[in-house]
């Protein structure tokens, strides 16, 4: 009888393990981290040696963000890169400065890239490597805004000090960002 009891207990334990694994999966299904990519474009034009443009953008306008909006419980920064879409003249080259500010105008980071040949970053974007402090500042802003249920907006500034390229200059560039939203489905 004792032997049988042990066997039955072992089977129940086995079923319990299966049940707990199920709960684990249920949690995994409930908590779904969603990648939210977002791109903002800048068109800077002029005949001066320094041209720039700023854009204010809100990631709430992303369709993916909208789809999960009511289920997002946290959001964090993942990655950012810069790329060129089009440019005039063909040999356009210069020193690029990118600044990202939060919705309150606080600078989150400034990245300077020297000797940028516009043609180099059309097919291969330049990945901007942020420091741990800069990432923390972005994440703190994201979480704070999420908690107040306000719009998550940024202001991105793009400028290029031209070192090569004659005449009127035009450069259309983009800042690509990815955020990870922790959602509870």
């Amino acid at each position: 009888m004792k032997f049988k009891t042990k066997i039955i207990a072992a089977i129940f334990l086995g079923l319990l393990v299966v049940s707990l694994t199920s709960c684990d999966i249920a949690d995994a299904l409930k908590n779904y981290p969603v990648n939210i990519p977002y791109s903002v474009e800048f068109t800077a034009t002029g005949s001066n040696n320094s041209i720039s443009e700023s854009q204010t953008f809100c990631i709430d306008s992303s369709d993916t963000f909208q789809e999960y909006k009511d289920k997002i419980k946290d959001i964090k920064f993942t990655e950012i890169s810069f790329r060129t879409i089009s440019y005039i003249p063909e040999n356009l080259q210069g020193d690029v400065t990118i600044t990202l500010k939060d919705g309150n105008g606080v600078i989150l980071f400034t990245e300077s890239i020297t000797g940028v040949k516009a043609s180099d970053y059309v097919t291969t974007p330049y990945k901007i490597t942020l420091t741990a402090d800069e990432i923390q500042a972005i994440n703190q802003y994201l979480q704070a805004v999420l908690e107040t249920q306000s719009q998550i907006c940024f202001t991105g500034s793009f400028s290029i000090d031209i070192t090569s390229g004659e005449g009127n200059h035009t450069i259309k560039a983009a800042l690509d960002l990815v955020f990870e939203a922790g959602t509870e489905l």
């Binding site: 969603v34 990648n35 939210i36 990519p37 791109s39 993942t78 990655e79 890169s81 790329r83 059309v122 097919t123 291969t124 974007p125 990945k127 983009a174 690509d176 960002l177 990815v178």
Partner: peptide
């Protein structure tokens, strides 16, 4: 996520 000429390509 993969970076490319049209922005990020994100996978689930």
């Amino acid at each position: 996520v993969y970076s490319g000429p049209l922005g990020y390509l994100a996978y689930p």
